[in-house]
Amino acid sequence: MFDLTWLNPIIAFAMGIILAFNLRKVFARVQLRRGPLLWLPGKWQDINRSKLLQPLYDIIKLFSKQTIIPHTATILFILAPVLALICALSVTLFVPVAGNSFDYSFSLVVIFYLLVFVTLFVIVGGISSASLFAAMGGVREVELMLANEIPFILGTFALAITYNTLSVRQMMGFNLLWNPLAAIAVFIAILVKLHVKPFDIPEAESEIVGGLTTEYSGKLLGTLEIVKLIMLFTLSALYTDLFLWVPSTGIMSWAVFIVGILLVGAAIGFTNALFARFRIDQATKWLFRVSTFISLLAIGWAVVGAYVL
């Protein structure tokens, strides 16, 4: 029987578009604006149409534009977005989508590595464009990534300790109640990975014009945007699976999954709208202190829960 897991990348892309739309809508609503249009009755379709697929239209537009490659760029400039896309699509095979994924006894570690590789390839591609702004963005991205990996790993390992396994499918459960500290730590880590304010430093438009992706245009930029969408889906799905999952099968599992993803997406959108942007030294200090502290507390809680009680 055809394993439904192989459909995960396509589901990732499709739901990524809807999540990106969700993000923009929540961002606009918090600012008392209208935001992109979701639905309009049939009679009014000639005034305005639904903009639900707008992220897809943006990507298609990017793919139809000219790709300009700076003459100081190396071959990695072209290869890196493709490699990042490959890693991003691979992660979706291991993240349970309504329970479907390739599961091993160590799949959590595989997910870590692939997520780090995605960011790494984006950094490598940006820096190899030999642009000043990309260099500044690369430095910031590396610092942020280093500060962020520790709380992320510690937070998910707290769950690993509770369930005594490294396989994601066995860790799924409503862990928001059983280990809320880990939930907070991993949520903050997801915000940093997705470059959501207050942590969107590497994409700081008002300081370094485009950050890492300044010199990208056309098809390569389209590839990077697809990577961003897939990362948005993947991390929301991971969070839903680890912390908001009510064990169920069949159609109920899809319902739980989709509700969970939309909730996580809305939470990310709210945080995006409500904060200013950190300076890079303030962000790393905050992550090293507060976020690591919370994740260490989460591990303590898990240890107490697993071995003492």
Binding site: V30, Q31, L32, R33, K197, P198, D200, A204, S206, A273, L274, F275, A276, R277
Partner: peptide
Amino acid sequence: VGDLTGFRTMLMNSLR
């Protein structure tokens, strides 16, 4: 000032 420090919401509110 809000926009330059990344706080787009502040810019939208002040314009409103």
